[in-house]
């Protein structure tokens, strides 16, 4: 599902954010990505989401080679990836419902279908009763769950999460992680970047550890 072959990302200033990283995430696999800040976690996620392109090596996502992807095709690849951000990235001038509906609106899904699937997604994250509220009135954990609902509403085969529990207390963090586990059980491939080693070791999934741009550990 996600395949890195000797992928290297070097920025213009000569700084190498990722060096020769290779790994393969199978369909339906749930994988954590960890390492200190600056180790290259964000860069790796950016390569998967096609925000950056590898300087050398290959990155293949959902069968598509990122390095050779046309700019015009990028949106269609991103529709296959549900992205969850640390700072939620919600639109504060729209209701919870409208925020979650956004990926479906972008794809031109019919009105009836949008309502049905948005409510299904909100139900999964336990926010069905708050669809008419604005994100600003919700707690941090609830906002993150709106972000998750938006990421899964399209039923993408891949979910990327960048420090999804970064601002949450341990209990909420655990809840969020369990939510990801539920999605994983229905066959979604999930890659979660997190520096919360304690939490992710308890989850008992594969862990990729980066240090100074190199993959130094790959396993449970």
């Amino acid at each position: 599902m996600i395949q890195f072959d000797n992928a290297t990302k070097r920025y213009n200033e000569g700084y190498e954010a990722l060096s020769q990283v290779s790994f393969h995430i199978n369909p339906g696999e749930m994988v954590f990505l960890t390492g200190h800040s600056g180790a290259g976690k964000s860069t790796l996620l950016k390569l998967v989401a096609c925000i950056e392109k590898p300087t050398r090596g290959q990155v293949i996502v959902n069968g598509v080679n990122i390095g050779r992807l046309w700019k015009r095709s990028i949106p269609y690849l991103r529709r296959k990836i549900g992205i969850i951000f640390q700072n939620h990235q919600l639109l504060n001038d729209r209701t919870v419902f409208d925020n979650v509906a956004l990926p479906m609106i972008i794809q031109g899904v019919s009105h009836k279908e949008v309502g049905r699937r948005v409510r299904a997604a909100l139900d999964k994250v336990g926010l069905l009763s708050k669809e008419k509220l604005y994100p600003i009135t919700l707690s941090g954990g609830e906002q993150q769950r709106v972000g998750i609902a938006r990421a899964i509403v399209n039923k993408p085969p891949i979910i990327l999460a960048d420090e999804p529990t970064g601002n949450l207390d341990p209990d909420l963090s655990k809840e969020i992680m369990e939510l990801f586990q539920i999605f994983n059980q229905v066959g979604v491939s999930i890659l979660i970047a997190s520096h919360d080693i304690d939490l992710i070791t308890k989850m008992n999934h594969r862990i990729l550890t980066l240090e100074a741009g190199k993959l130094i550990r790959d396993g449970k």
Binding site: I51, R78, L102, I106
Partner: peptide, 16 residues
């Protein structure tokens, strides 16, 4: 700007 960035990240085409 922020809205445009979010839209691009979740797969909006330039046309949209």
């Amino acid at each position: 700007k922020e809205e445009i960035l979010i839209n691009k990240l979740i797969g909006a085409t330039d046309v949209f």
